[in-house]
Design a protein around this nucleic acid. Sequence first.
RNA 1: GGCGGUAUCGUCUAGAGGCCUAGGACACAGCCCUCUCAAGGCUGCGACACGGGUUCGAAUCCCGUUACCGCUACCA
Length: 485
Amino acid sequence: MSPPRLRFAPSPTGYLHVGGARTALFNWLYARRHGGQFLLRVEDTDKARSTEESTRAIFEGLHWLGLDWDEDVVYQGANVARHRADAERLVANDHAYRCFCTAFELDARRKQAEATEGAFKYDRRCDQLDRAEVARRVAAGEPNVIRFRVPEGRSTEWNDLVHGAISFPNKDIEDFIILRSDGTPIYNMAVTSDDIAMGITLVMRGDDHISNTPKQIMLYEALGAALPQFAHLPMIHGTDGKKLSKRHGATAVADWQHEGILPQAMVNFLALLGWSPGGEFNEVMGIEELIAAFSADGLLKKASIFDTKKLEWMNGQHLVRMPLAELGPLVARKMAAAGLATEEDLAARQAWYHALLELLRVRSRTVDDIVRQARPYLVETVTYDEHAAAKAWKDAAEARALLAAAHDTLATGAWEPAAIEAALKGLAEARGIAAGKLFGPMRVALTGEANSPGMIDVLGVLGREAALARLTAALNDIDRRTGLS
RNA sequence: GGCGGUAUCGUCUAGAGGCCUAGGACACAGCCCUCUCAAGGCUGCGACACGGGUUCGAAUCCCGUUACCGCUACCA
């Protein structure tokens, strides 16, 4: 079997939505798994809604996710001449005919029909016109569209890769328009013409296209082209079960990128929405594992809900697994943006920086979480969280004594984890308290926060000089507080 | 309305007639670990939409109902 050719065909009318991203991902995964090609086609025939900015956003989103495409991007708008030629060919073939009914008339008839019997279906009146009259009206310059003549007395069916057999009785499908009166193609015509021209062998798209499929199949047949396979993916909904929209918060992949979600986590999460490798498996997978495991058999039929919590958990898993060499620059960029450090500075003390990341990433779910928690270790002086200070330094005299003792203990001796720990535990024991009673006040003094990595690790990252300075600053702050009260 | 699609814990899913007392993951709760917070480990809570068939036996097959989603444009 020759390698499959798939495509992702977004219309550039917005940003790259997570639903679109997943459709792209599945197409990409299938192509990569089977050694085929993954093509990109921008469906920009709707000039009113398409924008260059949107096209760029889609490219960027795909690029961020690591979904690279083969061959040049196809712009549908560049192919209207072929679309029109194909439509005209169908007229010549007798598979389509010219219709002179105006949009206005059609609209009136449709309203009429809906008011009385319900469903409206084009009555084929223009198909009754004789050739001479059609020729005369065309020659007279009367506007007309081209309609496809739907074959009677049969059904159009296909074996969908995700849904199995799907069948539509042709009698339920009206003679649909394929070319507008201004000579531009209607969606189904453009798509079919392009998919044939691009040699697409598997059309994988959202299941909102299921009812377009019989029309496209008829077009393939009338055009004498080989049918591709079809796979219709379920939709992604918001937490309320409705179609994902702005109301649900972040829906564009770029939004998640800005929230500090890793592309590999996004890909991993999206892959598992609507697809499963089957059986028991580890859900945290890298892109190579996804490619190796991907198969159309695992595609699910049911629409799924985008669960932000799970995405964040997934991100945390990837955060811990990824190489520091890769995580470092990523976080550094955000730290620089937050004004906490410069990328050059962090690169200059890489060993220290990596040790810090190692401490923080296990406590984070997003890149932004890391940046937030890194603050105390990057700024000159800490700002105390009032709740934390009030609690840890509740007994000012005791806290003062403890911090002063800690300062003296840390001022001498080897600056090395085991030694520091032994010294501090010794101090706590000497004062007859649990180590935690000592670490609590120290934690606020050193980080300003109620929570932080282990005390010994914090001291290690801070270094003796900064640690002593902060202990002294805390002593002064406590004095200031008691002076005020 | 017509046509098409879908239906397992709150969510993502495993399950292809007996392995199901329905498994895993997220979330939630508790416990353990522990200097706090995480991470990790353990435990708990929690589902086959409903009704009929078929079968010795159904979450799995068939029919119907219900609910939800999509399409029903000279939009894509």
